[in-house]
């Protein structure tokens, strides 16, 4: 009898091993909980590699929910003062050299941001993983020394930008360490690799990310988050067009 209870207990314990009993949806919820905040302020560096040289663009960024975003470039001197404002589906750029604000739309949205592997369209992306995708755990692997679930995400609606994604989620920290974003045709469009994850304000957050446009030649664009604050109070006027010319 004792032996039977022992076997049962062992089986139950196997079933409740960390990461084994959790559903795909719960994983996405935990990832969203790490990544999404009501508001945020960050200082970042974007390292853009071109054929001849690399350049680093530093910026201060503010966000409110997933529909409002304001960014100001602080370096290099040539780009200092360039500002970008996103309000829902509209995007404006202020160029201090010409003292003009232009709205980015249509074909311009498809252009690369400062020569990086990110397009303006990528900045327009909104929504959390759980809102946009249904998920399926494909397998468990070890990626860069971390135990991960490989998950396949299928868009819940036709208007989601990437209809399919494959993501590697760190089993312990619930952070995506590697992502593949696919077109409707199944063609791989972008990859995102997080090579550094830090504990910030109780969340695990990637602080060094490599974005790579897979249709484009090159080494990709490195993105460093040097500091980040979550759920802070940001004055509403930060997300106004008047801020661009200030």
């Amino acid at each position: 009898m004792k032996m039977r209870y022992l076997m049962l207990a062992l089986l139950l314990s196997i079933g409740s091993l960390p990461g084994q009993s959790i559903s795909a949806e719960e994983i996405l919820n935990k990832v969203d909980a790490n990544m999404i905040s009501k508001s945020g302020k960050s200082t970042t560096r974007m390292v853009v590699h071109s054929r001849r040289a690399s350049r680093t663009i530093e910026s201060i960024n503010y966000s409110l929910g997933d529909s409002k975003f304001y960014s100001e470039y602080t370096s290099p001197p040539r780009d200092k003062g360039t500002k970008m404002l996103k309000l829902d589906s509209d995007l404006w750029i202020f160029d201090p050299n010409t003292d003009r604000t232009i709205q980015i739309s249509g074909n311009m949205l498809k252009q690369s941001v400062m020569g990086s592997d990110l397009s303006y369209e990528d900045f327009m992306e909104e929504g959390s993983l759980t809102e946009d995708y249904s998920a399926k755990i494909i397998e468990s692997i070890t990626h860069e020394g971390r135990a991960c679930w490989v998950m396949e995400l299928t868009a819940l609606r036709d208007d989601v930008s990437y209809q399919k994604r494959r993501i590697y989620i760190d089993k312990e920290r619930f952070v995506s360490l590697y992502e593949e974003w696919f077109a409707k045709s199944g063609k791989l469009l972008k990859t995102v690799s997080a090579s550094e994850v830090k504990r910030i304000s109780g969340r695990w957050y990637p602080t060094k990310i490599l974005f790579k446009d897979e249709l484009k030649q090159g080494q990709g664009t490195e993105y460093y988050i040097d500091s980040i604050e979550f759920d802070i109070t940001i004055p509403p006027h930060t997300f106004s067009k008047a801020m661009l010319k200030k």
Binding site: R157, A183, K184, K187, L189, L215
Partner: peptide, 15 residues
């Protein structure tokens, strides 16, 4: 390669 957004706003790409 060509990349477009379809009528719903989803990315599609072809060679």
């Amino acid at each position: 390669s060509i990349r477009v957004k379809d009528i719903n706003g989803s990315f599609n790409a072809v060679d």
